[in-house]
Computed example of a mutant assay.
Amino acid sequence: MLERSEINNPAPGKLSNTSLLPDEIKIKKRRSIVKGIIYILLTLLAIVCFIPFLMMLVNATRSNDAILTGFTLVPGSSLIENYHTMMDYVNIWNGFKNSLIISVSVTVLTGYFSALTAYGFAFYKFKGKNFLFVFMLVMMMVPGQLGLIGFYELSKTLGILDTFIPLIVPAVASPFVVFFLRQYIQTTLHPSLIEAARIDGASEWKIFHTVAIPIMMPAIATMSIFTFIGSWNNYIMPLVILFSPEKYTLPVLMGFLKGSQVAQNLGSMYLGIAISVVPIMIAFLFLSKYIVNSISAGAIKE
């Protein structure tokens, strides 16, 4: 038989398990309902965001008359006709190649040299370091279009107009990428790792390539996505710098399509836009996880 004290004062563990169990079930049910509502809203939001891209892809396969009648989810049979109509006026694949060359070059060079600069700002001490970093932050706030005329005159003086050089080399100096990578590496790379590598006899270049670069890869991948998309969608700079039609980038060619007879064929216009947008969609589809990983990792400082 139980003693009177055990009956009147049951064990704390038993009390919590019996009295709080219904409350825990209610809390779990509420959390499940809220989570389900959030998932439903996010699914609806994703569908709404995807509808314009779906309309673009479907209309690329339809004729001009069919597009004017209204929207449908059923693809048409005028894809080849729209393609030939578009190719009669512009060589869109040549523009695709030019955009790809410029975007890949800018992405690779920006990722490497920005990581090198960020590493120097984070772990080296030199005269004028703070001034240069503040100057870099100020440059982040200045729109690039303000120096367009001066940049054109400089390129003309150097004799590099109508080439890809003005579109690749200046874009490598990206203050925002340097700032982001610096903040990231300060939260993920401990100085003791660098000191240990120096004690082992590694050179500064080897430390950067074997220690810093692997740790910075998630952030570099994230910035590479934005850099690639920004370079791919760049319209004003190639329009000012390039003169030869065979060197035009894809956005410039799409701008010329609007002023040609192709604009009367909406299917050809949608097809050209789809060709220019699909690489960006693919990049986000396969590399978007790096954005979440690097931002979440950079938000926590130990």
Rank of each mutant, 00 (worst) to 15 (best):
M86G: 05
K97L: 14
T117H: 05
N82K: 00
T85V: 13
G120F: 02
G120N: 05
L116Y: 04
G95Q: 06
L100M: 14
Y83G: 05
T110R: 11
N94P: 04
L100A: 06
V90S: 10
M87V: 13
V106R: 00
N82F: 03
S105Q: 13
I101A: 04
D88Y: 10
D88G: 12
Y89M: 09
V106M: 03
T117V: 10
M87G: 08
H84Q: 15
G95H: 04
Y83K: 08
I92F: 02
S105I: 13
F113E: 01
N94Q: 09
N94Y: 03
K97I: 15
I102R: 06
A118M: 09
I92T: 01
N91A: 05
T107R: 00
A118T: 04
L109S: 08
G95T: 10
F121Y: 12
G120M: 04
F121P: 01
A115I: 07
L109Y: 06
K97V: 11
K97S: 11
N82Y: 02
Y119G: 11
T110D: 11
A118H: 05
A118D: 08
T117Q: 09
G95D: 10
A118F: 06
A122M: 09
F96N: 13
Y89N: 10
V106W: 01
W93E: 14
H84P: 14
L116T: 02
A115F: 07
N98D: 08
I101D: 01
I92E: 00
W93P: 12
A115G: 11
L116K: 01
V106H: 00
L116E: 02
F96D: 14
G120S: 09
S105A: 15
D88N: 14
G111P: 05
V104H: 01
H84R: 14
K97E: 05
V108A: 08
G95Y: 03
V90Y: 07
I101T: 10
I102Q: 07
A118W: 05
G111N: 12
I101R: 01
S105K: 12
T110M: 13
G95P: 15
F113A: 01
G111Y: 08
T110P: 06
W93T: 12
W93Y: 15
I92S: 01
I102K: 06
A115T: 14
